[in-house]
């Protein structure tokens, strides 16, 4: 039964990683850049949600919606100001800029919201479901997180498969020049991608802080890096890959904590990543790039 408990908390943590990883992977797929500021957008989303619920006493759902809107705008603004001017620059320049944006957001949060930890109120309350006479307990946060992850996954799949914006995104991800020559507005498509990714980050922020309620300006960085790892693990650029990578990473992390060592859990997670990449360099579901000879 303890095994099952661990598995469920692993899936729950993994679902949060997966939601964040989806943002990473979509932006990477379309803009071909690693948006290292993504983790800090999560933190901004969590703070907005925190203030909406705790200070302004808005209903949790309204708080999350508000956080999503703010983060979507933030994502679009970051892309326009920091990344768009560098679109034809070497990828290293964009990477460094993304790290810069990440630190900027963290320090802006320090100024605005002080380094004092905030206690985040769970967006779904503290209830839990007990099964098998109390042997297996699943908190509401866990259930909501897993359901949200599945719903987001379905939404993204339907969106990219069957809408014109989704098709435009996939076209841009393959060949921006050709897409533009077919009349696609590449800038708008990239903006939509950043908006979706950042909106997901806001949801992830609210769920993350509901499960782990201490909110500080660096809250987003470690989950951000883990989710990036998850995206690479599953094959960066692939939507199902982000889900699979996120879930596996969460489960491995919880099992490593439970059965091996709490201190070593992160080391174990990254060791598994290295082994997977040695065997499958493009990640689990990543596309192997065939060189034409």
């Amino acid at each position: 039964m303890t095994f099952l408990n661990f598995l469920i908390s692993g899936i729950s943590l993994g679902s949060i990683y997966a939601i964040i990883a989806l943002g990473y992977t979509m932006v990477y797929g379309i803009a071909k850049m690693l948006n290292f500021a993504h983790g800090d957008v999560i933190m901004v989303g969590a703070y907005i949600c925190f203030y909406a619920i705790s200070r302004f006493e808005l209903p949790p759902l309204v708080g999350i919606l508000l956080a999503m809107i703010v983060c979507m705008l933030l994502g679009i603004i970051i892309e326009r100001l920091a990344y768009k001017p560098l679109r034809s620059a070497p990828s290293l320049a964009v990477l460094i800029t993304a790290i810069g944006v990440s630190y900027f957001l963290q320090n802006a949060a320090l100024l605005l919201w002080t380094p004092n930890p905030k206690v985040f109120p769970s967006v779904v309350g503290d209830g839990k479901v007990e099964l098998f006479g109390g042997q297996l307990t699943i908190s509401h946060v866990t259930i909501v997180t897993i359901v949200a992850c599945v719903a987001i996954m379905i939404f993204l799949t339907v969106f990219t498969e069957s809408t014109k914006m989704g098709k435009a995104m996939r076209a841009c991800s393959e060949d921006k020049g050709a897409a533009q020559l077919m009349g696609i507005n590449v800038n708008a498509t990239i903006s939509i991608t950043f908006a979706i990714g950042s909106g997901l980050a806001a949801i992830a922020g609210a769920l993350l802080c509901s499960a782990y309620p201490t909110l500080i300006p660096t809250t987003g960085s470690m989950p951000g890096i883990k989710a990036f790892t998850a995206a690479v693990f599953g094959g960066i650029g692939s939507i199902p890959g982000a889900l699979l990578g996120g879930l596996l990473l969460g489960v491995i992390e919880i099992f490593a904590k439970a059965y091996i060592s709490t201190q070593l859990s992160d080391a174990i997670v990254f060791a598994v990543l290295i082994i997977v990449l040695l065997v499958k360099p493009a990640g689990l579901l990543g596309k192997q790039i065939r060189e034409k000879v």
């Binding site: 098709k167 996939r170 076209a171 077919m182 009349g183 696609i184 939509i192």
Partner: peptide, 25 residues
């Protein structure tokens, strides 16, 4: 050739129609 090779044949054609489709998000 610069087709969108991961998209289906029909989707490639539909990408060309993007500007003529007007429904919103």
């Amino acid at each position: 050739i610069r087709l969108f090779s991961d998209l289906t044949v029909e989707e490639n054609v539909k990408v060309g129609m993007d500007a003529q489709m007007h429904y919103n998000m």
